[in-house]
């Protein structure tokens, strides 16, 4: 990052092809210890934390407690009593187990298919300068701009014609479509952040192109790829509307069930289901938390 201080003030310090990864997590020693006390008083700081904490965590806790509540009378701040009966209700539901298994199947297959399709493309976007490269990158982004519901409505005609309605493949396609952007962009940024000089050094030492990719490039780009893989897994795991329109009646996943559960069962049952559905997401994201926070995700969304 030696060139940074000389940049004009209007540019952003984005990584170029020759810089090392994790710009965002650059250590910042000089600014330390200054500011906060003078910028906002300690009281305001704590107030900000409490308000944000209440805003973010409040609804989740309020819902979570409900899963163990017998009944809840307004305006009490605690339920009238405690019980585990709602967990029983959920576990006895014959649809639950199959929908959980199905959700994991779809998420895994989606992740693999998406990786196989998109990772080579991400490498190409990063390392080759082919005609229309930038246009294609933005074209992939355009998949996000068309409203999801509208897309599913439009897809329906095509799926009837291709006989993809109510098939496993049809659902996988819908899920993969939702992952293409980050499965291409985040790894592409990760590949770009691998210094060319490392690869060239390995080349000079006699390694073949494939060996260089396997031994040098892939390991260095792995954090970004991992973030993308887990994001795809979760995107599939959380997808409900498209799964319903395409998969019904053969394939009912957990989030699809959640939609109707919320509206039709006692609130406590929906609370139990919410906790169950949130566990895999939370565990997986905690695993990659460091990379997500470290800027792998943010890096991926800057076109270059």
């Amino acid at each position: 990052m030696t060139s940074l201080p000389t940049l004009p003030a209007t540019t952003t310090p984005t990584t170029s092809d020759t810089t090392a990864p994790s710009t965002a997590a650059l250590p910042r020693t000089a600014g330390r210890g200054r500011g906060p006390a003078r910028l906002v008083g300690p009281v305001l700081s704590v107030a900000f934390v409490i308000v944000l904490g209440l805003f973010v965590l409040g609804p989740l806790l309020w819902l979570g407690v409900r899963a163990f509540a017998t009944n809840w009378t307004y305006p009490n701040l605690m339920p009238d009593g405690w019980t585990l009966q709602w967990w029983n209700t959920v576990f006895q539901d014959p649809n639950l187990q199959s929908s959980v298994v199905l959700s994991f199947q779809f998420a895994f297959v989606t992740m693999v298919v998406s990786a196989v399709l998109c990772l080579p493309a991400a490498y190409a976007f990063s390392r080759f300068d082919f005609p229309g490269r930038r246009v294609f990158l933005i074209g992939l982004f355009a998949t996000n701009a068309f409203p999801r519901m509208g897309l599913f409505v439009a897809l329906a005609s095509l799926f009837y014609a291709f006989n993809l309605m109510s098939t496993f493949l049809g659902v996988v396609i819908v899920h993969v479509l939702g992952t293409v952007v980050f499965m291409t962009w985040i790894p592409a940024a990760a590949f770009s952040a691998v210094p060319r000089s490392y690869e060239e050094a390995a080349r000079d030492a006699g390694a073949g192109r494939f060996t260089v990719l396997r031994k040098v490039t892939l390991p260095l780009a792995m954090p970004g790829i991992t973030v993308a893989l887990i994001m795809s897994f979760l995107a599939s795991f959380d997808e409900a509307q498209g799964t319903y329109l395409v998969g019904n009646p053969e394939y009912i996943t957990m989030p699809t069930q959640m939609y109707s559960l919320v509206l039709n069962y006692p609130p406590q049952v929906a609370a139990v289901f919410s906790i169950l559905l949130a566990i895999p997401s939370a565990v997986l994201l905690l695993l990659v938390r460091k990379h997500v926070m470290g800027g792998q995700l943010a890096e991926g969304f800057q076109i270059r």
Binding site: L117, C118, P120, Y123, D129, R133, T143
Partner: peptide, 28 residues
């Protein structure tokens, strides 16, 4: 050849998006 190779590598997601997003949007 290098450039065409890049395009070929990049094509699977592009084709997927063209067929299952671009085309349906045109039909719609």
């Amino acid at each position: 050849r290098h450039r065409l190779g890049g395009l070929a590598l990049a094509s699977p997601p592009l084709i997927l998006v063209a067929v299952f997003v671009g085309f349906p949007i045109l039909v719609a």
